[in-house]
Amino acid sequence: MTTFIARRLAIGLVMLLALSVLVFVLLRLAPGDPIDAYINPSAPLSAEALAALRARLGLDAPLPVQYLGWLRAALTGDLGFSTQRAGVPVLPLVLERIGPTILLMAAGLAIAIVAGISAGILSAVRRNSAADVGLSVLAFTGISSPAFLTALLGLYFFSVRLGWAPSGSMTTPGAAFSVPDLLHHLVLPAVILSIGHAALIMRYMRASLLEVLNQDYVRTARAKGVREFWVIVKHAVRNALLPVITLIGSTIGVAVGGAIFIESVFNWPGMGLLLVSAVSDRDYPVIMGATLVIGAAVIVVNLLTDITYAAVDPRIRVS
C-alpha cells in the first residue's frame, strides 16, 4: 500500500506541475500584455518608465525564466500580489475563498451521492418498471443539461417566481450570521450543483448493480433462502459500489467547473466567483494561484479516492 500511495502521489505532483505550465503559457499567449494590468489607463507611462516596470516585474525575461521564477516563489508559498487589489497577497485571498467553495461542493456532492445511489438501486431492482423508466428519463435530462442553464432556470423559478430561496450571496446582507440563514442560502445552489452528478451516479449504480445481480454468488444466496432485502444490501450493493466510488472521485474535478457557473449565477463568494472576476480583470497572479489551489485540491481528492478503492479491492494495488 505504501508503494501504491507513493506512486499515485508522484503522478499527482507531475500532473500539478504540468497544469501550472499549461496555465502559465496560455495566460502569456492570451491577447494583450500582462503589463497592462499594472498600468493606470488614465496615467500612461513613458517608454523608459514602462521598460523599468517591466524589468522590475521580471516580464522582460524569456518565458521559461519567468515561469521558473514564479515556480520558485510558489514553492515557498509566495503566489504574488493581486493586480486589481493593491497590496493584497494572492495566497490569503485564495485561501479565504476555499471554505465557501468546499461547503457548496460538499453539500452538492452529498446530495448527489445519496440521491444517485438510492435512485440507481431502485431503478435496478425495479428494472423496466415505470419507476425505472421515469428515473432514467430524469437522469438523461440531468446529464444533458448544462450547469449554467440549470442554474439560471433554478434561480428564475425558485427565487424569482416562487420566492422559496434567496437569489444570491451566502448570507443575508446586514443580518447577523446564523446557521439556518446559511442553510437557507445554500440549499438551492447545492441542489442545482448536484443534479448532473446525481444523474451520472444513478446511471453507473444501475448498470453496476444489474451486472452484479446476474452473478452466481447472488443466485446462490437466493437459493439458500436469504431474504431479497439482504441479498440486495449485503451481497449486491457492496460489490456494485466499486466503480461508483471511482466515479465519485472523478466527479470532483467536474464539480469544480460546475461550481464556477453556480457561484457566478448565485454570487456565492467562493473560488469560482474569484476565478471568474480574475479572468475578467486579467488578474494573472490570482488566476495562477486559484488554478494551482484548485488543481491541488482535485489531485488530493483523486488520491484519496484511489486509496479508498485500493482498500476496498486489494487487486488495484498491483495493477
Rank of each mutant, 00 (worst) to 15 (best):
L138E: 06
V88K: 10
A147S: 15
I195R: 00
G134Y: 03
I192C: 04
A190W: 02
T171M: 14
L91F: 10
L149I: 14
A131R: 07
L153P: 04
G108E: 06
P92Y: 02
S123F: 06
A112L: 05
G168W: 02
L155D: 02
A86H: 13
P100Y: 01
E211N: 14
A107D: 00
D181I: 05
A86W: 11
A119S: 14
S144F: 07
A147M: 15
L138C: 14
L149P: 04
V187A: 15
G77R: 10
L193A: 10
G99L: 15
V133T: 15
M105F: 02
G116D: 09
L155S: 02
V94G: 01
L210S: 11
F140D: 07
T171Y: 14
F81P: 03
L153E: 08
F140K: 05
L104P: 02
F158W: 11
V160L: 12
H185W: 03
S208W: 00
S118C: 03
V191D: 07
L162T: 07
A124V: 07
P189R: 03
I121A: 08
V133R: 13
L104T: 00
D181M: 10
S82K: 00
T171K: 10
L103N: 01
E96D: 14
H184E: 14
G120N: 01
G116T: 09
G87Y: 06
V90R: 00
W164H: 07
A151W: 00
L210Y: 08
A110H: 05
A151P: 04
L95Y: 05
E96P: 05
G77M: 09
L182N: 01
L153Y: 09
L210D: 13
I201C: 11
V88T: 11
R85K: 13
L149Q: 09
A124W: 01
L200D: 00
T171P: 11
V137G: 08
A207K: 11
Y204K: 01
I111M: 12
G80H: 07
T101C: 06
T172C: 05
A110T: 14
G168K: 00
E96W: 02
V125N: 04
L186T: 08
L183F: 10
G87C: 05
G77Y: 05
V187N: 07
A86E: 10
V137W: 10
A110R: 03
S167Y: 05
A86L: 14
I121L: 08
G174T: 07
F157L: 15
L193E: 04
L104I: 00
R85D: 11
S167Q: 10
G134T: 04
T171V: 13
A151N: 07
S144P: 13
A176I: 11
T83Y: 13
G154V: 03
I195G: 04
V88Q: 10
D181E: 14
S145G: 12
A151K: 01
S167A: 12
F148Y: 12
R161L: 11
S129F: 08
L109K: 00
V125R: 11
H185D: 11
S159C: 06
I98R: 00
L188C: 08
G120D: 04
G168Q: 05
L109C: 09
S178L: 11
